[in-house]
Amino acid sequence: MNATVASTTVASTTGSAPDGLSLRDVLRHPTIMIGGSIMLIMIAAALLAPWLGTVDPQSLSGARRLKPPSTDIWFGGDMVGRDVYSRTIYGARISLMVGLSVAAISITIGLTIGLLAGFVRWVDAIVMRVMDGLMAIPSILLAVALIALTGASVANVILAITLSEVPRVSRLVRSTVLSLKERPFVEAAIVVGTPFPALLWRHILPNTLAPLLVQGSYIFAAAVLTEAALSFIGAGTPPEVPSWGNMISDGRLVFQIAPHLVIFPGVALALTVLAVNMIGDGLRDVLDPNFRAR
């Protein structure tokens, strides 16, 4: 007990995050540590792709065609002779970019809509019914329809997935705001004369951000998977852009004789989603006082 008291005091004096939680506490959490390390490797791979012994992911070479992995061609070659290793590394760029953009954009839009709906009655009545309508459509179906309308490009994929995630975020924010509004500490802030913008900034937002951050990590993971699924069925990134989804889709045809075409992008995809989910679980544990072990 004494040790934990001492550690929280140290944390609150050195840390930057609110409620006595320092960045060090967050990083020390085991699942965040493991998930974060995998994520760091993925991000490094995506950023440093040209310098990691890769060749042009589009270049064709008859010699590499359907070659199994070897010390020479690390992940082997695909059926038209492209280098699977280079394509997997470059594919990380697409997946991470889609995941990050979808998470960031849907949180920004969802936060705005959720805050408005939580405070303004008529916005709540109208906008949340629209959100209910959007949520009734399966997200893949919605995305396929949008891509069919607008054409395949990375930007359109991001837009399509974002559109189906926004309702979830705004619902979460709205319900958090509605419950926060009734909390005595918010009423206490009103009683001491806190103007509305300050009320929002000091009391509502900080207490909304924690669940939102956790939700954001799950959105990231879901977006990576949805992008892969869209590419797999040919409604995602255009064929010339290497993405894990269309790599798995291409490799599926020759899976019996060259399983490495599916295995490498598949493992990369699974690892990324696992890592993001681990970070999300860890954040939930660390940020939610009810889950906190100490």
Partner: peptide, 25 residues
């Protein structure tokens, strides 16, 4: 307020909570 646990913002220090009315005015 009645409930001393719910009437203080868990993410604000004592200095911030007690200082809030002063800042507002």
């Amino acid at each position: 307020f009645q409930d001393p646990f719910a009437s203080l913002n868990p993410r604000m220090t004592v200095a911030q909570a007690v200082g809030e009315p002063l800042l507002n005015f």
